[in-house]
Design a protein around this nucleic acid. Structure first.
Length: 119
DNA sequence: CCGCTGACTCGCG
DNA sequence: ACGCGAGCCAGCG
């Protein structure tokens, strides 16, 4: 698989994520199954995401909207898009999605289950 | 070819 | 809970 095809594979996968569901960067890489394709690569692909791809459904590990650190504007945009399709957060102020309700792919490694509810 | 960087992630204070 | 450093691999100058 050529390098640029990685991006296409990522976009193709992201398009299959149903509204109201979210997947982490790491999960996208894992699902595609190319050993070179890491979470970082998925992040790069999302940076150049073409129109029509529901990029907001790809989030950081643990439900955290990782874009928040680098771009407050994109964070607000992503949050707005997610909430408009029914995704809920741990709290109004929290940048973390309620993974219990919205995670599309179940964690199988047993590690991701240490997601905590708030309150 | 070398070095730096990044829409990432994990482990440690 | 949170900042930091390290590991990660492809892109770019």
């Amino acid at each position: 698989m050529d390098t640029l095809d990685y991006y296409e594979a990522v976009y193709a996968f992201v398009r299959t994520i149903p509204a109201g569901k979210v997947v982490t960067y790491g999960q996208v890489a894992e699902e595609i199954g190319e050993w070179r394709l890491t979470a970082r690569m998925v992040g790069s692909a999302m940076h150049y995401v073409p129109e029509g791809v529901p990029w907001q459904r790809v989030i950081g590990a643990g439900g955290y909207l990782s874009i928040a650190k680098r771009s407050p504007d994109l964070y607000r945009e992503q949050r707005r898009l997610l909430e408009s399709e029914g995704v809920t957060f741990l709290s109004e102020d929290s940048p973390r999605v309620n993974m219990r309700l919205h995670q599309w792919i179940e964690e199988t490694t047993g590690q991701g289950t240490l997601f905590e509810e708030e309150g």
